[in-house]
Amino acid sequence: MTAAPRTAAIDPASVDLRTRMGALELGDPILAASGCFAYGQQFADFMDLRRLAGLSTKGISPKPRFGNPLPRICETASGMLNSIGLENVGAEAFLAEKLPFLRELGVSVWVNFFGEDFAAYVECARLLEAGRGQGIAVLEMNISCPNIKKGGIEFGTVPEVAHRLTRACVDVTDLPIVVKLTPNVADIVGMADAVAQAGAAGVSLINTITGMAIDVRTRRPRIATMYGGLSGPAIKPVALRMVHQVATALPGLAICGMGGIVSGEDALEFIMAGASCVQVGTANFARPDAALVVVDELRARMAELGIASVSEIVGCIRPIAPEAPQVTE
């Protein structure tokens, strides 16, 4: 018995989509997600990239990486598994060859980065610091990719390790560091708190969920590395739950939400759960201008619901009203 707030629809043009992710100001809350947008150039054939609020690049490591054996991807019910292997051009080539294009766009450029070990993370943050003032707005630290061996899993799953790693990277750059967390943990709040205490400017929630698919004809996994990261609408409920848990437990921490966002209504759910902004990932593969579609739909949906601004609804959800006490006699 919970009624919807009664509000009259408003003019879509009057909806204020501006938002803040910590100190960062964004024209609207929709960004393109890391790993699903490369370094942006390929999308120029299909859309006006300048209309994006921002984008997160393919994860950058200090040295170039070539990626995993194939098959690397497979589609599953309402989602897909991938194990690309963090293929990227490396920090040096990124700064020299990719960043100038992104800078020209005038959008919020988040550079996703990682290292193969502790020192490499710090090295990468140090290298990317050179991009401050050259177009980089945020370093999005990926401590959560399931597709890297070398004991990397504990960066994203052991709070003390994540804390030390975040602190070490924060110390070598003046760029804000947003830490992208893995959902493959028992206590997401503990992880978020650990990186926040270490100086993270916010958290990105969530990376892919580790999964598996099997080809029964060949009796082989559908992904060469056996397990891959599940993305797409299949993971949205998990992502929303984690965004809400972190937003509720750590109200001061800025959250960028992601996981299966395809529509404006999806984005609205994340914002109401507590995300200041969101990223659109897997949807870009089917529709290169997916992020722009989400922005348009978000504006229209907010207008229908009589919501005047993004800022007034971040984390606005309330629990279902309690039931009336039962009278037993």
């Binding site: 699903c36 490369a38 390929q42 299909f46 194939l70 690397r72 991938n82 870009n284 593969f285």
Partner: peptide, 29 residues
């Protein structure tokens, strides 16, 4: 033919193993 998500060089799913300086090229691009 390889399994592709995007078809235009972004998902990096359709790797083709090759000889040369890089171990993989992309079926789509």
């Amino acid at each position: 033919e390889e399994e592709m998500a995007c078809g235009f060089g972004v998902c990096l799913g359709c790797a083709v193993p090759v000889h040369g300086p890089r171990p993989y090229l992309y079926c789509c691009s």
